[in-house]
């Protein structure tokens, strides 16, 4: 695996439940984790609102991910729906602000999906790498 650009950090909002569990499994596994990810844990992906995502971009994130549980597997109930609801507005918002909408991704996981998580982070990191440096990076 080629080492990826560490200068382009990705901020990831992890739902405390299934995605965080996948992330823990992934970090513990032998497959060395080669992306610079700044994990922010939230109790439920439904908590993530556009303001938080914009703030991350403002501070210097090259990409932002929201990792939530799959529909009907939410510990609380409304989380996945809520995070889906905000995904499109966020993409539109960052587009207006002059950022590529690929810089935001919202993905849903089930427990035990560490390999999918690795693939997803890989592909997201590659996407972000291809883009120019974010104009917001201070």
């Amino acid at each position: 695996m080629p080492s990826l650009n560490r200068k382009k950090p990705i901020l990831a909002f992890f739902c405390n439940w299934a995605p965080y569990r996948c992330y823990m499994d992934l970090c513990r596994s032998e497959s060395s984790f080669r992306h610079l990810i700044y994990p922010v844990k939230v109790m439920c992906s439904g908590r993530v609102d556009p303001a938080m995502v914009l703030f991350a971009f403002e501070k210097g994130a090259e990409g932002v991910m929201v990792l939530g549980c799959k529909d009907k597997e939410c510990r609380y109930g409304p989380g996945p729906k809520q995070s889906t609801k905000i995904a499109e507005p966020i993409k539109a918002l960052i587009h207006i602000l002059g950022l590529e909408s690929e810089r935001f991704r919202s993905v849903k996981y089930s427990f035990n999906e560490k390999n999918r998580l690795l693939e997803e982070i890989d592909s997201f990191a590659k996407t972000v790498d291809k883009l120019k440096k974010s104009p917001f990076v201070p």
């Binding site: 700044y38 922010v40 609102d49």
Partner: peptide, 15 residues
């Protein structure tokens, strides 16, 4: 730990 200002501080700490 779920308020806007808290997340701002956490994100700030990273960057």
């Amino acid at each position: 730990e779920a308020e806007q200002w808290y997340f701002e501080k956490v994100i700030n700490a990273f960057f």
